[in-house]
Design a protein around this nucleic acid. Structure first.
Length: 170
DNA sequence: TGCGGAATTTGCG
DNA sequence: CGCAAATTCCGCA
């Protein structure tokens, strides 16, 4: 099974998405100058697969990301994702996080309680392993006191995403 | 408001 | 098995 890639610039950030067949395999932010990778696969600038076998899901994603950055309330919750060897706990956290509506935020504690655990920090740890930023909107999970909390791709990005969604920030 | 410490759960080495 | 982590809560200045 060959992979297809999409590189797209959202404001100051570059986003790389990889798909295999009808499913997304990973999404990541990267610096254009550096060599990037998703799931350990080195990414070529352009490859033949991309040209001869355009991926419908990536074309749709490109469209959605562009409109998302324009400020439209895009819903990414129905994109099929490949979640092969992820822990059951992480899947629970991600499944719930996907349901947080555009423009709204929830706390790590809220997520933890919804899945009946006191492991607030474990929730953060699971979100830190999110392979699909934006698609699984982990940027909408913040601290109970309203402060930002963490974000693996970088807090500047988290702040910017929330700002574009019109969320109230501290 | 802010800092230190304890409680908690998960996953990686 | 030990430890760090995208947290939270509580006490105390």
């Amino acid at each position: 099974m060959s992979s297809n890639f999409l590189e797209i610039k959202l404001g100051p950030f570059w986003v790389l998405a990889e798909a295999e067949g009808k499913k997304l395999v990973g999404v990541s932010f990267f610096h254009k100058k550096e060599s990037s990778s998703v799931s350990g696969v080195n990414v070529p600038g352009v490859n033949k697969d991309e040209i001869t076998h355009p991926s419908p899901i990536l074309e749709r994603l490109q469209e959605d990301l562009i409109n998302y950055w324009r400020g439209e309330k895009i819903d990414f919750s129905d994109y099929p994702l490949r979640l092969d060897n992820c822990s059951p706990f992480a899947k629970k956290v991600w499944r719930l996080t996907r349901k947080i509506p555009y423009g709204e935020v929830r706390s790590y504690k809220w997520v933890a309680e919804k899945i009946h655990t006191k492991g607030y920090r474990a929730v953060g740890a699971a979100l830190a392993r999110n392979l699909f930023p934006i698609i699984i909107p982990c940027h909408r999970v913040v601290r109970e006191d309203g402060s930002l909390g963490g974000y693996s791709p970088g807090l500047k990005i988290k702040r910017k995403l929330l700002e574009r969604e019109g969320s109230y920030l501290f």
